[in-house]
Simulated scan of single mutants.
Amino acid sequence: MAGIKTELTKVRLNKFLASNTSLSRRKADEAIFSHRVRLNGTIISSPATYVDSNNDEVMLDNRLIASKTKEYLAFYKPKAVLTSYKREKEKRCLSDFDELKRKKPAYSGRLDYNSEGLILFSNDGYFIQKLQKPKNKIPKEYLVYTDENLSETDIKLLEKGITFNVINYMPCKISKLADRKYRIVLYEGKNRQIRNMIDYCGKKTRRLIRTKIGSVELKGLNPGEFRQLTKNEIMEIANV
């Protein structure tokens, strides 16, 4: 798949740089304003300049920037795997998976070591930024198993949003599926958020599985498996 908008080859220069380098959109703008970018040999000063990714030559700091073949992957992170390419104390990490260790694509949806479930990977910086920006409020869905049942009061408190250990947690949605089993939908992604929310209620999280990010589902994947995202899944996130 060539990119998010596969039917188009012309994109704004700042978006082209953000998608094909490690620069964010803001940093790409700064590079353009600083006269570090050339289009077909000419210094460009406007981020709104359009680039034909199939025919134009773009250089950043005198280095040719090629339009990359875009990849978009869904991965079922197993329990006891670090969401990092760097190994720590002999723990398994992302570099242990052949699909990731050579290219090391960027990811969105970090999970702690003892949690499992869906993480999205891509070499398309624009796509990853869409997933990571809090203002986009892309829903993330989890199955959560607890050591004790949450009370109705617990659920109402968490759904309204709480402050715990000086950290504010936004409102969320919680559905009880069975005894000590819940579906929780978050619209942000703070470190160990669900575990902290359950701790706030005086309970413990026994198992945590992320099952969905936006419209992308974990369904059909086993721990350690990957699949390509569909065009519809990519477009839905890109157009948030």
Score class of each variant (00 low, 15 high):
Glu30His: 07
Val216Trp: 03
Thr163Ser: 14
Thr9Gln: 06
Arg63Tyr: 00
Ser46Asp: 14
Asn149Trp: 01
Ile119Ser: 06
Glu148Tyr: 05
Ala48Cys: 02
Phe97Glu: 08
Lys176Asp: 04
Arg25Lys: 12
Ala66Met: 06
Ala66Thr: 12
Val166Asp: 14
Lys140Arg: 15
Ser34Met: 05
Leu218Cys: 09
Ile237Trp: 05
Thr69Lys: 13
Lys181Trp: 00
Leu82Tyr: 00
Gly220Trp: 04
Ala106Leu: 11
Lys156His: 09
Ser67Lys: 10
Val185His: 01
Arg63Gly: 00
Gly117Asn: 07
Ile65Tyr: 04
Glu217Lys: 15
Pro223Phe: 04
Asn239Gln: 14
Thr42Asp: 12
Lys89Ile: 05
Ile209Asn: 01
Ile194Val: 11
Tyr126Met: 08
Asn239Cys: 12
Gly214Asn: 08
Tyr126Trp: 08
Leu8Ile: 08
Lys203Asn: 14
Lys156Phe: 02
Met170Lys: 14
Thr205Arg: 01
Thr83Asn: 02
Lys212Asp: 04
Pro139Lys: 07
Lys160His: 03
Leu64Ala: 12
Arg195Pro: 03
Tyr113Gln: 04
His35Ser: 15
Val81Tyr: 03
Tyr200Met: 03
Asn149Ile: 06
Asn222Ala: 13
Lys212Trp: 00
Glu141Tyr: 03
Pro223His: 06
Arg206Phe: 00
Ala18Asp: 03
His35Met: 11
Lys173Gln: 13
Thr211Arg: 07
Gly109Asn: 08
Glu99Ser: 13
Ile234Met: 03
Ile44Trp: 01
Asn222Phe: 01
Glu141Lys: 14
Asp124Glu: 04
Arg92Thr: 09
Ser22Gln: 11
Leu229Gly: 10
Leu218Tyr: 05
Leu218Arg: 09
Ser46Ala: 12
Gly224Ala: 11
Ile162Gln: 04
Ala238Met: 02
Thr42His: 10
Val216Asp: 06
Leu13Gln: 06
Thr49Ala: 11
Pro105Cys: 07
Gly41Thr: 10
Lys219Glu: 14
Pro223Leu: 09
Gly117Arg: 05
Arg195Phe: 05
Gly224Ile: 11
Asn232His: 05
Leu229Phe: 05
Ser53Gln: 13
Tyr50Cys: 09
Asn54Leu: 10
Phe16Thr: 08
Asn123Leu: 05
Leu13Asn: 09
Tyr76Val: 10
Val185Trp: 00
